[in-house]
Simulated scan of single mutants.
Amino acid sequence: MIEPDRTEWQIRCAFNAFCKRVLKNEAINIYNERQKRQAKEMTFSDLTPQEKNLLYTLDKQYEGEEGESLQVAGKRITPRLLAEAMRTLPIEKRNTVLLYYFFDKSDVEIAELLEIPRSTVQYRRTSSFNGLKRFLEEHADEWDD
C-alpha cells in the first residue's frame, strides 16, 4: 500500500474533522428545533372542550329542517335524494365512491385496500359518477325562479 505524504494526510484529517463537526452541529440544531416545537405543541388530550371546538367547523347546510336542499344547475337536491342515489349503486361501486370522495383515498390506495386493479377502481368510480348524475337529473325537482 502506498503511504500518502504528510500534507495529504493532514488535509484528509482536517476534512474528516470538519465533516464530523458539521454533522454534530446539524444534530444539535435539529435537537434544539425539536425542543422548541415541543414546547409550543400540545396534545389533543390536553385541550379543553372549548379549544377542541375551535379545531373544526360543521357544514350547516344539511342541519335543521328536513326540507332544506341544495340548488345545483337548476335542480333541487336534498340530502335524502343524494342518499337514495347512493343506495341505488351496487355495493362495490358505492364503496369505491365513498372511499374516493368522502375518505379522500386515491385510486391506488382504494385498489390496494379492496385488492383489485387500479383500472377497475377508476371504472367503478367514473361509471358510478355517471349513474349518480343520471339518477339525480331524473329525480331532482325543477327549480323555478
Rank of each mutant, 00 (worst) to 15 (best):
L89W: 02
A83E: 15
P90Q: 01
L99A: 01
M86T: 04
L99K: 05
R94E: 15
D107T: 13
D107C: 15
A85G: 13
K105G: 00
A85F: 04
A83Q: 14
L89S: 02
K105V: 00
Y101S: 08
K75C: 02
Y100R: 12
A83M: 13
P79K: 13
L98H: 09
K105I: 00
F102L: 12
L82D: 09
K93M: 13
I91M: 11
A85I: 03
V97I: 13
K93A: 11
F102Q: 07
I77A: 03
L98S: 07
R76G: 00
L98E: 11
I77H: 02
E92V: 01
T78H: 02
K75G: 07
P79G: 04
V97M: 15
V97G: 10
M86V: 11
Y100A: 08
R80M: 13
K105D: 00
R76A: 00
Y101I: 00
I91V: 10
Y101G: 00
L89A: 00
L81E: 06
I77R: 05
T78N: 02
E92D: 12
R94F: 14
L81T: 03
L99R: 05
T78K: 07
D104H: 15
P90W: 01
I91W: 08
T78M: 05
L81V: 03
R94Q: 14
R87Q: 14
K75T: 00
K75V: 04
L82G: 06
L89M: 01
K93N: 10
R94S: 11
V97K: 07
V97A: 11
T96L: 05
F102I: 01
M86Y: 14
N95H: 09
D107M: 14
T78S: 12
R76T: 02
T96G: 04
L89Q: 00
T78A: 03
R94V: 09
L89N: 04
E92I: 01
F103R: 12
E84G: 01
A85P: 09
K105R: 10
R94H: 14
R87V: 05
T78V: 03
V97R: 02
D104E: 08
Y101R: 09
L98F: 13
A83L: 15
E84R: 06
D104N: 13
Y100W: 05
D104C: 11
D104Y: 15
P79D: 05
E84S: 09
R87A: 15
E84Q: 14
S106H: 09
K105H: 02
L82I: 07
A83I: 11
V97N: 06
I77Q: 06
P79Y: 06
K93Y: 10
E84D: 12
E92A: 07
E92S: 03
L82W: 15
I77W: 08
L98T: 06
L98G: 02
L81G: 04
K93T: 11
F102M: 07
L81S: 03
R76N: 04
D107W: 15
A83K: 13
V97W: 14
Y101L: 06
R87N: 15
T96F: 10
M86A: 07
